[in-house]
């Protein structure tokens, strides 16, 4: 019992830091900026991005173009929403789902030993699929989870329009 107390307080302190409105706002900006930046080139070059999607050999070819469109636009819309604070939790959740898919795709590709371009930010000339990519996406997944869990409407358009504080 005596030892439990400091552990408990450390945990509370950590939660207090992670749930801090400023921290969550920074994570929103980070995730939003990354996703909007990632989507721009994919929307501009859908053919190239669809090729990058097919290279993973996970999505059936027939649905690969649709999937590429979905991914590119989800990144854009979720990115804009999470920055602006419109449907913020839903946007964070969409980003969480996408990152989860990316992580699964990376793990599958690493197991299969595929030497492919990851198609992450640029539709062309990008990063290969490797462990650093996996670590990056896991960290981003954690950030998206924190926003889902602790977002309280700090500096969001929704709150501005609702007129509350």
């Amino acid at each position: 019992m005596l030892q439990a107390a400091p552990a408990e307080s450390r945990r509370n302190a950590l939660i207090a830091v992670l749930s801090n409105a400023g921290v969550i706002f920074s994570l929103r900006l980070l995730l939003g900026a990354l996703f909007v930046y990632a989507s721009y080139d994919k929307i501009a070059h859908p053919h190239q991005f669809a090729i990058a999607v097919r290279a993973y050999k996970i999505i059936p070819v027939e649905y690969s173009n649709l999937f590429a469109l979905m991914l590119a636009w989800s990144e854009m819309i979720a990115g804009v929403f999470i920055i602006a604070g419109v449907f913020t939790k839903q946007a964070a959740s969409a980003i969480f789902i996408m990152l989860f898919m990316f992580i699964a795709a990376i793990v599958i590709s690493l197991i299969r030993g595929l030497a492919i371009d990851c198609g992450c930010f640029k539709s062309k000339g990008g990063h290969g699929v490797d462990y650093s990519l996996l670590v990056r996406d896991i960290l981003l997944l954690a950030a998206a989870f924190l926003v889902m869990r602790f977002e309280r409407g700090y500096l969001t358009i929704q709150r501005v329009f609702a007129g509350s504080r």
Partner: peptide, 10 residues
Amino acid sequence: GGTALIAVSL
């Protein structure tokens, strides 16, 4: 909610 947003994006 996230899935719905992805569907709308599609």
